Computed example of a mutant assay.
Amino acid sequence: MKSITKFFRDVIREMKRVSWPKRKELTRYTVVTLTTVIFAAVFFAVVDLGISELIRLVLE
């Protein structure tokens, strides 16, 4: 039981040392991440559609 308590005390101590991003940085990082994910999703959807159409043309 002591080791679990010590573990959580150490976690709390380390979390106080963490350098958390400011609100402006966090907003910027979130926008960059969402933009990247949306771009990747659209890109792969277009590639998938193109490959699907190509296969349909070959199989007809």
Rank of each mutant, 00 (worst) to 15 (best):
T33Y: 10
T36L: 04
K6I: 07
V32Y: 08
F7Y: 03
T30W: 04
W20T: 05
A45K: 11
I38G: 06
M1C: 04
V46R: 06
D10C: 13
E14H: 08
V31M: 00
V47G: 04
E60S: 15
T36G: 05
L49E: 13
F44M: 12
W20V: 02
E25S: 00
A41I: 06
I38M: 07
E14N: 10
M1F: 06
P21D: 04
D10Q: 13
E25H: 01
A41Y: 05
V32S: 06
T27D: 12
D48K: 15
D10P: 08
F44A: 12
P21E: 00
V46W: 10
L57G: 13
P21S: 02
I38T: 08
T30N: 02
K2A: 03
V42N: 06
R23H: 06
L34Q: 05
S3I: 12
L26A: 03
T36D: 05
K16F: 14
K22W: 03
K24F: 00
T33K: 09
V46H: 09
E25N: 01
K16E: 15
V37R: 02
T36I: 01
V32H: 08
L57I: 13
E53M: 09
M1H: 10
T35R: 06
I55N: 05
E60M: 12
V42Y: 01
T36W: 02
T33M: 12
V42R: 00
G50I: 05
I12P: 10
K16R: 15
T33R: 14
D10R: 10
R56G: 03
T33H: 11
T30G: 03
L34W: 08
T33C: 14
A45T: 07
F8A: 00
V42F: 05
K6A: 15
R9G: 11
K2Q: 01
T33W: 13
I4Y: 04
K6G: 13
L26P: 07
R9L: 07
T27W: 02
A41E: 03
S19A: 00
M15D: 14
V11A: 12
T30R: 06
F8Y: 07
I12W: 12
T35M: 08
F43Y: 07
R17F: 13
R17E: 15
T30E: 07
R13C: 12
F7M: 03
R28L: 13
I55H: 00
I4R: 03
Y29L: 09
L34R: 02
A45H: 04
Y29F: 06
G50P: 08
R17Q: 14
F43T: 09
T5Y: 10
R9D: 13
L54R: 13
L57C: 08
R23D: 05
V18G: 00
V37S: 09
L34Y: 05
L26G: 09
I4D: 11
K22G: 09
M1W: 04
V18E: 04
E60K: 12
R23V: 05
E25C: 00
V47T: 07
K22R: 08
L34M: 01
R23W: 01
R13I: 08
A41C: 05
L57Q: 15
F39K: 03
L26R: 04
L59T: 13
I38V: 14
R28C: 14
F7N: 03
